[in-house]
């Protein structure tokens, strides 16, 4: 299966379509860190929020680059389940690379600062919280992008709609005071947590929420793929 993951990543990179989400990601990060300096945990929490739709879009592009017949050839070679898993893992690898860029980016442009007040978190703790926030966003974004992919929805128009609704919904439904926050992945709640008190129990709860939401979204993707044949 690793050979299929490499083939899909190579196809994604060689078409040049990887550039669009990369540039979009750099633009949103530049905008985010262009306004001033923040402490790592707070900055990374917001970074994970703005990266979420970019990662989902990147996933959709990666999965859509492969022609439908080529996807079927891969199914014949490795089986249906492995083909689907390979696509998701390839998207996950691409998302992790984007996250790595997002984690390094603020240090290159001077967008983060160390503790100012004695009560502030240390840099390592802030970075650890930032990594956690991004890692929570990755599976949810990959699942949303997969749901919006051509193999899942059938047509390009529906895919864009799913992507837009998912991206906006994650922010709107995640606002403080939302009555149905569980309908969205906890990226907004995570950002609020990294900016405030990050109690261990809260971190655990948010992690469980992200895992459950992603599992449901992946389940939806697999169900759609099954329905699409």
């Amino acid at each position: 299966m690793s050979a299929l993951i490499r083939l899909r990543l190579a196809g994604f990179l060689r078409t040049g379509r990887a550039l669009a989400p990369l540039l979009a990601g750099l633009v949103v990060l530049g905008t985010l860190y262009g306004g001033g300096r923040a402490q790592p945990a707070e900055a990374y929490g917001v970074s994970a929020v703005v990266l979420f739709p970019v990662l989902a879009w990147q996933t959709k592009i990666l999965l859509d680059v492969e022609p439908d017949v080529q996807r079927r050839l891969a199914q014949v070679a490795v089986g249906v389940a492995r083909e689907r898993l390979a696509g998701l893992l390839a998207a996950g690898v691409a998302a992790l690379v984007a996250v790595a860029v997002a984690l390094v980016f603020p240090w290159l442009v001077g967008g983060v600062t160390g503790p100012v007040d004695p009560s502030d978190r240390s840099v390592p703790v802030g970075v650890a919280l930032g990594v956690w926030a991004h890692l929570l966003a990755v599976p949810a974004a990959v699942a949303l992008g997969a749901l919006a992919s051509r193999a899942s929805v059938g047509g390009a128009g529906y895919g864009v709609a799913v992507l837009a609704l998912g991206g906006v919904g994650a922010v709107v439904l995640g606002l403080a005071g939302s009555v149905v926050p569980w309908l969205a992945p906890p990226i907004m709640a995570t950002a609020r947590t990294t900016a405030g008190d990050a109690a261990a129990l809260t971190l655990l709860g948010l992690t469980a929420w992200a895992v459950a939401w992603s599992a449901a979204a992946f389940g939806g993707y697999l169900w759609r793929r099954r329905a699409q044949g």
Binding site: A10, G11, R14, T15, E66, P67, D68, V69, Q70, R72, L73, V76
Partner: peptide, 11 residues
Amino acid sequence: WVPERFPADQP
């Protein structure tokens, strides 16, 4: 499997 039309639109 040899499909009727090979998917040549690949980089």
